[in-house]
Simulated scan of single mutants.
Amino acid sequence: MSDAPVLKAVILAGGRGTRLAPFTTVLPKPLVPVGGVPILETVLRQLSFHGFQETVLAVGYLSSLIRAYLGEAEISRRMRIRYHEEQKPLGTAGPLASVDGFDDDFLFMNGDLLTTLDYAAMMRFHREQNAALSIAVVDRHMQIELGVLGINAASEVVSYTEKPSHSYAASMGIYACSPSIRRYIEPGVPLDVPTLVLRLIAAGEKVVGFRSECFWLDMGNPTDYARATEAFEQNRAAFLRDEVLA
């Protein structure tokens, strides 16, 4: 019998998704379809493909629709899906304090991401690093379409850079976690991930970044939703690898 731990995940699926209105006036954001498949179903199928056996959905807004859809979906027969109902919004980290059954390292993520991230590789990296928290990182390059001046205290221009480009290590909204991080989260009290990360760092806990060159897009607005749909339809096999093996 294998001694490998059961891979588990927590997915945030309770937000109202107001920036994606009017879609989210009748559907919870995780059920908004990308290429004909609800984004939440795509995420769950990806996790299953990478060996995850159990997922807890932190739900709230229109949660009955999520339960009804997944109750009939084939993915519910491939992995155990549990629900954690939020009575009030608890932010992006607050729900972790009261989700039970997580005594080993686990994955935690937003439920509205389109990505090709290798979740299993991230979990291996997290354990190898012996970290409290590992953050999936994507490098983003931002072009400033202006001439940028350096001006000193005497109002003298000391530099001039035409349309500079800056690079940033950005969070994907996907985290590998040690169960010990729950010591820094108070049950029932709203908490966001940036505040949790700063608490961990201040306490001397190890927080690391897992860099990946994967495709990643946060569907936060109609423009990104359209981009996600186009990317999915152009290369469906990259996002739903279980279909390739079927």
Score class of each variant (00 low, 15 high):
residue 152 N to I: 02
residue 117 L to K: 00
residue 127 R to I: 02
residue 147 G to F: 05
residue 115 T to P: 00
residue 141 H to D: 10
residue 113 L to K: 01
residue 139 D to M: 05
residue 81 I to G: 05
residue 124 R to S: 14
residue 106 F to A: 04
residue 84 H to D: 10
residue 83 Y to E: 12
residue 133 L to R: 00
residue 137 V to P: 00
residue 110 N to P: 03
residue 91 G to S: 08
residue 85 E to D: 15
residue 126 H to P: 08
residue 167 S to W: 01
residue 85 E to I: 14
residue 98 S to K: 11
residue 99 V to H: 09
residue 157 V to S: 03
residue 92 T to Y: 00
residue 94 G to D: 05
residue 112 D to K: 03
residue 87 Q to N: 15
residue 150 G to L: 10
residue 92 T to A: 09
residue 112 D to V: 03
residue 120 A to I: 00
residue 84 H to P: 01
residue 167 S to H: 01
residue 122 M to G: 06
residue 168 Y to K: 02
residue 169 A to I: 00
residue 91 G to I: 04
residue 148 V to P: 08
residue 167 S to I: 03
residue 100 D to H: 10
residue 135 I to L: 08
residue 131 A to I: 03
residue 85 E to C: 03
residue 164 P to E: 04
residue 85 E to L: 15
residue 128 E to D: 14
residue 123 M to H: 07
residue 96 L to M: 12
residue 97 A to Y: 05
residue 137 V to E: 10
residue 171 S to D: 11
residue 124 R to Y: 07
residue 131 A to C: 11
residue 138 V to I: 12
residue 138 V to P: 00
residue 92 T to G: 12
residue 150 G to R: 12
residue 121 A to W: 08
residue 153 A to Y: 09
residue 120 A to P: 01
residue 170 A to S: 12
residue 133 L to A: 05
residue 102 F to M: 13
residue 128 E to S: 13
residue 155 S to V: 08
residue 115 T to N: 07
residue 173 G to W: 00
residue 143 Q to V: 13
residue 131 A to P: 03
residue 152 N to H: 04
residue 97 A to E: 09
